[in-house]
Amino acid sequence: MVLAAGSGSRFGGGKLLASWGAGLLLEGALAAAFAAPVRSVTVVIGADAEAVAAAARSFDPRVLVVHAPDHAEGMGASLRAGIASLPPDAAGAFVFLGDMPRVPTAILRRMAEALAGGAAAAAPVFEGRRGNPVLLSRALFPDLLALTGDAGARGVLQALGGRLALVESPDDGVLFDVDRPGDLNR
């Protein structure tokens, strides 16, 4: 799933629809999500819902769109909406952030292999810093459905200890996100 429900207030609004490369910022996250070993890609929308949904469908009409009605609460609401929308037989969920356009796709299969090998979740690391996306096993879905506020899955991941597989990233794309317009030029 790609979380794309935020208002981008630090950016001044409309962040996910900002120009990035030859397309839109959101398209970087979508490209990574479609490169992952998954059955489907869901985009969770909220602020700018119609425009973000249209951009996602324009990128790939196979995308599933889910609206998080309480998106203003923060990332917890987006995660709840996304997790609740998954099919009952989903073994897990990758969680991509719509404002992270440079995720190296080489890590995605290795993350899936870690989960298949028994990890409760997998996350990339670059130079000792944990990044995104994360891959969460179905066993964590009840905890994710109980999230509130804007911290996302951070607390759930921290509680896993050694059950969180850390996968070394080939570059800093797992850390790079866009918060302000000037970040587009980094």
Rank of each mutant, 00 (worst) to 15 (best):
R62K: 14
D60F: 01
S40N: 10
A53S: 08
A72L: 14
I45L: 12
G74T: 10
A32P: 07
L17F: 03
S78E: 14
A68N: 07
G13H: 08
G76M: 14
A22G: 14
S78W: 09
E73V: 12
L25E: 14
F34R: 01
S7T: 06
A32Y: 06
A55T: 01
T42I: 13
A54S: 12
R62M: 05
S78M: 13
G76F: 14
A35C: 06
M75Q: 08
L24Q: 14
A31I: 09
L16S: 08
A47W: 07
R10D: 05
S58G: 12
D48C: 11
P69K: 08
W20Q: 11
H67S: 09
W20Y: 15
A51P: 01
E27F: 00
L64I: 05
G14L: 05
L64W: 04
A29Y: 04
W20F: 15
V38Y: 06
A49S: 14
A81C: 12
G13Y: 10
G14M: 03
V65H: 02
A68E: 00
A55G: 07
P61M: 00
A51N: 11
G74P: 11
F34N: 08
A33T: 02
S19G: 12
L25A: 09
H67P: 03
R80C: 15
W20L: 07
P61F: 03
F34L: 07
L64T: 04
G46E: 05
G46H: 04
L24H: 10
A22Q: 06
S78V: 05
F59E: 03
V41H: 02
G28A: 02
G12D: 04
R39D: 15
G14Q: 06
P61E: 00
A53I: 01
L25W: 11
R80D: 14
M75T: 15
R10K: 11
G21F: 10
S40P: 14
T42P: 10
G13C: 07
G74R: 04
E50R: 04
D60I: 01
A53P: 01
A32R: 07
V43P: 12
A56W: 01
A36S: 11
S40V: 04
G12A: 01
D48P: 00
L17S: 02
S9Q: 09
F11R: 13
V66R: 05
R80E: 11
S9N: 04
P61G: 00
P69R: 09
A47H: 11
V66W: 06
G21M: 09
A22C: 10
F34E: 07
V41R: 03
G12I: 14
A22V: 10
A81W: 12
F59L: 00
L79F: 11
L30K: 10
A54T: 02
S19I: 01
L26D: 03
S78K: 09
G76D: 01
S40H: 12
A47D: 13
F11I: 08
A68R: 09
R10F: 02
A35M: 07
G8H: 06
G46D: 06
A68S: 15
A32E: 07
D70S: 10
